[in-house]
């Protein structure tokens, strides 16, 4: 008899509301951060993570993935990001709500918690699901898929920290994921310097997504309507017993120096001369 999976898989997808990548970033007047009074959307790597979770469900029999849950830790407006995840196809969402930062224009990155804080919060949520168990209405997490980094602070550590805290395996910078539900493991292609690497990891595990993993879908109107009715659970960090007080202090944020345009030279000789002037010599 074929061994049947002991239970079906639950996927957790952490998502973050970030300044949209198309926005031209400006440092705020007090130099504590960037102007946040601009268009935000879901961090693009997280969008890839949501898409991948949905594709895994579509690829395997729909009942194999029993739940896809999106979670965000952020200010009230982060609800938009959760709605997008739900419209794409996540089943439910969790909002660990942080207070709105005092003034949006000169708020530093203080409104966005640090990777360690986020990892601890995610761990607390995952532990809680484990404790409650399937019977108690919990969704014990088998797979966490999240972005390799968030494009606002570019820290790129959350996935790794979470794996460390949980003691789970991890496959970072994924460009391809193959799930073997029966063996409870995943084969992941990773993007590494100068090529790719394939790893096999036992579930439960953490995957962080890279750009080439997939191309996220549009949210269709019926799904956007359905998303409005999907459940969103709201919590405070204290409900999970975590403290998100920053342990890092931003001293100053400044614009990079303006690039000066190139000059034109009249002849090759002049070019060679200029290169020598700037210390370039023939080998």
């Amino acid at each position: 008899m074929r061994p049947s999976p002991s239970r079906l898989l639950n996927i957790l997808v952490p998502v973050k509301r970030a300044v949209d990548y198309a926005v031209k970033i400006r440092v705020n007047s007090s130099q504590t951060g960037v102007d946040l009074n601009v268009k935000h959307s879901m961090n693009p790597f997280d969008e890839i993570a949501v898409e991948e979770a949905i594709r895994l469900r579509e690829k395997h029999s729909p009942s194999t993935i029993s739940s896809i849950q999106a979670i965000t830790i952020g200010p009230p407006k982060s609800i938009d990001t959760l709605r997008t995840a739900l419209a794409m196809g996540a089943d439910s969402a969790v909002h660990v709500e942080l207070p709105e930062s005092s003034s949006s224009s000169d708020a530093a990155s203080s409104s966005s918690p640090e990777p360690l804080g986020v990892a601890k919060t995610l761990k607390a949520w995952i532990d809680k699901q484990q404790q409650k168990g399937e019977g108690g209405g919990g969704k014990p997490v088998d797979l966490v898929i999240l972005g390799k980094q968030s494009i606002d602070d570019d820290l790129g550590q959350t996935g790794q920290m979470l794996a460390g805290l949980l003691g789970w395996g991890q496959a970072t910078y994924a460009s391809k994921i193959e799930l073997d539900v029966e063996k409870k493991e995943a084969k992941v292609m990773r993007e590494i310097d100068g090529g790719s690497e394939e790893v096999r990891v036992k579930l439960p595990m953490i995957v962080t997504t890279d750009l080439r993993l997939n191309e996220p879908r549009y949210a269709s109107l019926p799904n956007i309507m359905k998303a409005k009715k999907k459940p969103v659970e709201k919590l405070k960090p204290s409900d999970l017993g975590v403290d998100l007080t920053p342990i890092m202090e931003t001293l100053k944020v400044t614009e990079p120096p303006k690039r000066v345009g190139g000059g034109k030279v009249e002849s090759v000789d002049e070019l060679v001369e200029k290169l020598k002037e700037h210390g370039f010599t023939a080998v």
Partner: peptide, 13 residues
Amino acid sequence: LINTGVLAQNPAQ
């Protein structure tokens, strides 16, 4: 009047 549709979620879309 419509079958369905898609709504852009971000500037890229």
